[in-house]
Each structure stands twice: as structure tokens, then as C-alpha cells.
Design a protein around this nucleic acid. Structure first.
Length: 462
RNA sequence: GGCUGGAUGGCAGAGUGGCUAUGCACCGGAUUGCAAAUCCGUUUACCCCGGUUCGACUCCGGGUCCAGCCUCCA
């Protein structure tokens, strides 16, 4: 039985899809005005894992992740760069796709862009105005009237009265109520704009997710995900808009991933304590980052540090050296696979699932020393579990020989290394251990670790 | 201030009303020309105070501390 922690219920609930065998999942994606950082990597990897596991469970998954390509920050950044908005957003969309691919994430089924769905947003806003849930203010902006939706605040457990009382919301003269939020921003000179029955302008942020999720997945769908910081007000606002516009229950399961932290503080653009996916994957193999992310439960905070990445790297080295040692020409072990599924069924408990992989790795190393055939089922089990998480699927040497991009120019290439290993083999054969050790130290200085074995010497980086 | 969530061994990180999580690190040993890798063995826990119970790290109550949201944010 697959259970998912539903943020709205604040409890794990058995997962029952609307249509048997099918899952519709919508995840709030990126606003494309800058590079993605490790916090964004977490959303990408976590929901990739969720989608892969749903598929593993036999569901046909419709995974929609939007791209916000029109908003204040994008307009500001494009102006700063003296670049067109389209050029800016296309550039960062491409970089985002590159990051996602590096992290081993499958592309979503669809990735709707806000600017390509403005008609749907206008239609939804029109409905909201017609039904009395939204109003056009004197300045031309259109706002959602929070007082018309009595469940407002239920997702995040907030009482609108409390919000008003301790309001830190900037007082906007145009709003009837400080909690009202903008659906449509009136046109301003030099900004993109679309014609609409309620006046030219551009959409507010929240409406895009309501319009695009409904367009792609229907008025009620199974799972809606995103970072924990989107719970309020973004997701709260989505619920209000969607349920008022369609009259239907919006989402059955809300999933929110925890933050990546640096020194126990949230990694964020405004604090400036972020590391981009690109810079980290130049220093560590992208799969190290993926394992690092999946090593903790998706709802827990995740502290970013080189030490933790080093640990993930060590795990993968051990993983790939096990696979290198033993061929996986056998069937996976059913009991272990069952335990793996049980762990994943329990709200995607990847740390527990990965612990099972570690246990099998130990067995491969232990048994594989003397009996490769007996170790093969364990290796096959590791491969099967790894395939579901998309870990450990590379050629072992591709991982073990991988070098950090920043080091590439001043380190030895593979041919140099093999040359030196051959020289060392000669020295060892003639029992010239002084020369042999000199070569090994030289390689170690270049980040290359040698391992002498019965089949000769192998090497790996770091 | 309000609302969420959390506190597990040196570090990371699961979990359970009584039985070794797991990985890394440490220490001892095997192996090795020496290493590395691997294996064997050992050590280190459940924030505090009450309560329930034959028995609580696990349940209940009260504290303390931490993080997040309440403004754009994955």
C-alpha cells in the first residue's frame, strides 16, 4: 500500500488515484531569470524520484512542471542585461534542462510556459470576476477577494483574521483587504502585455499554476507538489482561485519538499548562501548530488556541505567498485525487493531504501571476494533497486575515473595514468619498490588512487 | 506574536512499546612488498521534566532549543 504524506491533512494517507492506474501530478517549477541552485536541484530530484516510483508501481503518470517565464524579476533582469525577455528566459530554460538532465531527471510529460497559456488565465479570471470572487481595482489591477472563499488558510493552517491582525503585508491602497492577491497586473509602459476583457496587462504569479494545472490535468487532480515555502501563500491562493473558478475540489494530495540549508539556514537567493547546480557538478559527479539529495527524506531539511557530498561520493565509489567486482547476471532477490518497495511505499522513504542497498553492497563485497557467482544475485538486486532511484546505473569506470572539471587542465589524462601504471608495474616486477612508490605518490598528488589486485592495478579519482 | 515541522551515537540518517537500522569516521585485527580497496571484531544514541505501562528512544502532558512560513522564494 502506497502512502503519501498529504500536507493538507498533515498525515500520511493511502494513495488512491482518481482514475485507477493513472496519476496526474503538477509541480511548481522554476522562475527562469537565473541559474538553478541546489535547492532547485532538490525539487527536480525529489519529484523525479516520486514520478519514477509511481511508474515502478505501475501507474501511467502525467507529470506536469510549469515554467514561469513572465514576472517582475524576469522583467527587471532583462532590463538590467539590456536583453529581451524571451532571450533571457530561453537561456535559463536551456540551462535548467541541462541541470535536470545531469542530475538524472526524466523530462516531465509536459512543461507549460506561462506566456503560452495566458488565454486560459484570462478565461479563469473572467470567470472569477463573473462569479463575484474577483474585482477590478481603480488602478486597473484585478484582485481575488479572499473573503469570498471560506476555506482560505486551510492548507497552511492559518486563520485569515490572524493574518490580518499581525499583518506584515504591505498595505496596497488598491486592495479592499490586505489578504487579497493580484490576478492581473495592469499594463505599464515597457512591459509585456496582453489584451483582456478587464483591460490590458499581464498575469499575476498564482493564477498561472491554477490555469495550467487545470488545463493539463483537469479540474481535480491527484498530486500537487512544490517547495515547502510555496505552501503559503502560493498554494493557498491556487486552491482559492481554482475551487472558486471550477467549483471542484482542486487537489487530492499536497506534497512539499523540505529546504536545502547552509549552516542551518535556508539556502536562498536573498541570503546569497546558494551554490548553483552547475558549480557543484563541476566539483562532484552529478550522481553524487543526486545521492546526497535522496539520502535524506524529502520532507526533512537537508544541510549542504562538502563533507556530506564527500560522504555521498564515498558511497558511490563503494557502490561502483562492488559492481565492477561482480557481474549481475542473476535475478534480483525477491525479499529484498519487497523490503525496498515497502520502504518506498512509506511516503518515499529513500534513506531506508538506500540502507537496503548498502546492505546488499556489503554482501557483494563480502561474498564476491571468494565466490562471484554466489554474489551475483546481490549485485542484480542492487541494480534493480538502483534503477528505480536512477542511481548506480553508469559504467563503473565512467564514475570512478570521472574528474572534476576544474581540475582537468592540470591533471593527468587517462593515457598518462595508464602509462605510469605500466611503468610502476615494471618497477614492481623487478622489486624496485622505491620507484614503484614514487609513481604511486605522484599519481596520488594528482588525485589518483591506485588499487593493486589479483587482476592487476586499477585506479580511481579522489 | 500567529501557524507548521523538527530535536537519535563524532558526523549523516532510518525506525520501533521489549529483539544490531544503515553508511561514514574512530580503535584493534586479517590481507598487502608498503599502500589502497575489501573483510572480521570493538566502541559511541535516542533534548529536559513529569505521567501511562510489567517495560518508553518509541504513547500522553509540560518545558527548552532549532528551522520554515506569515513579503519574492524550490
Amino acid at each position: 500500500m502506497l502512502t503519501i504524506y498529504d500536507s493538507a491533512a498533515r498525515a500520511k494517507r493511502e494513495f488512491t488515484p482518481i482514475r485507477p492506474g493513472h496519476v496526474g501530478i503538477y509541480v511548481c517549477g522554476m522562475t527562469v531569470y537565473d541559474r538553478c541552485h541546489i535547492g532547485h536541484a532538490r525539487v527536480l530530484v525529489v519529484f523525479d524520484m516520486v514520478v519514477r516510483y509511481l511508474k515502478e508501481r505501475g501507474f501511467d503518470v502525467n507529470y506536469v512542471r510549469n515554467i514561469t517565464d513572465i514576472d517582475d524579476k524576469i522583467i527587471a533582469r532583462a532590463a538590467e542585461n539590456a536583453e529581451s525577455i524571451e532571450s533571457l528566459t530561453n537561456r535559463f530554460i536551456e540551462l535548467m534542462h541541462r541541470d535536470a538532465e545531469a542530475l538524472g531527471c526524466l523530462p516531465p510529460t509536459s512543461q507549460p510556459r506561462a506566456t503560452e497559456n495566458v488565454d486560459e488565465m484570462i478565461a479563469m479570471i473572467t470567470t472569477l470576476i463573473d462569479r463575484g470572487n474577483a474585482y477590478r481595482a481603480d488602478n486597473g489591477d484585478v484582485y481575488f477577494d479572499v473573503s469570498t472563499f471560506d476555506r482560505y488558510g486551510s492548507l497552511s493552517g492559518r486563520d485569515p483574521e490572524d493574518l490580518r491582525a499581525g499583518s506584515r503585508v504591505a498595505v496596497d491602497e488598491a486592495k479592499d483587504d490586505p489578504l487579497d492577491f493580484v490576478l492581473w497586473k495592469h499594463a505599464k509602459a515597457g512591459e509585456p502585455q496582453w489584451d483582456a476583457p478587464f483591460g490590458p496587462g499581464r498575469p499575476g504569479w498564482h493564477i498561472e499554476c491554477s490555469a495550467m494545472s487545470t488545463e493539463a490535468l483537469g479540474t481535480t487532480f491527484d498530486i500537487h507538489g512544490g517547495g515547502h515555502d510555496l505552501m503559503f501563500p502560493h498554494h493557498e491562493n491556487e486552491i482559492a482561485q481554482s475551487e472558486c473558478a471550477t467549483g471542484c475540489h482542486f487537489v487530492n494530495y499536497w506534497m512539499h519538499n523540505g529546504f536545502v540549508r547552509v549552516d542551518d539556514e535556508k539556502m536562498s537567493k536573498s541570503l546569497g548562501n546558494f551554490f548553483t547546480i552547475e558549480e557543484v557538478t563541476q566539483r562532484y559527479h552529478p550522481e553524487v548530488v543526486r545521492l546526497f539529495i535522496l539520502s535524506s527524506h524529502y520532507r526533512s531539511p537537508l544541510n549542504y556541505s562538502d563533507q556530506h557530498l564527500d560522504a555521498a561520493q564515498a558511497s558511490l565509489s563503494r557502490w561502483y567498485s562492488a559492481l565492477k567486482k561482480v557481474p549481475a547476471n542473476a535475478e534480483p532477490i525477491a525479499e529484498v525487493m519487497d523490503a525496498f518497495h515497502d520502504a518506498m511505499d512509506d511516503d518515499f522513504n529513500t534513506p531506508k531504501a538506500i540502507a537496503l542497498i548498502h546492505e546488499q553492497l556489503s554482501l557483494v563485497h563480502k561474498i564476491g571476494e571468494s565466490d562471484k557467482e554466489a554474489a551475483a544475485p546481490h549485485a542484480a538486486t542492487i541494480n534493480a533497486m538502483g534503477a528505480i532511484l536512477n542511481l548506480g546505473q553508469l559504467d563503473p569506470d565512467v564514475f570512478l575515473h570521472w574528474s572534476a572539471e576544474g581540475d582537468r587542465e592540470d591533471t593527468l589524462d587517462d593515457a598518462d595514468i595508464n602509462q605510469l601504471i605500466a611503468q610502476r608495474a615494471e618497477a614492481r616486477a623487478s622489486r624496485n619498490f622505491e620507484e614503484s612508490d614514487r609513481i604511486r605518490d605522484l599519481l596520488l598528488d594528482n588525485g589518483i588512487t591506485l588499487e593493486d589486485g589479483p587482476q592487476g592495478t586499477t585506479w580511481r579519482r579522489q
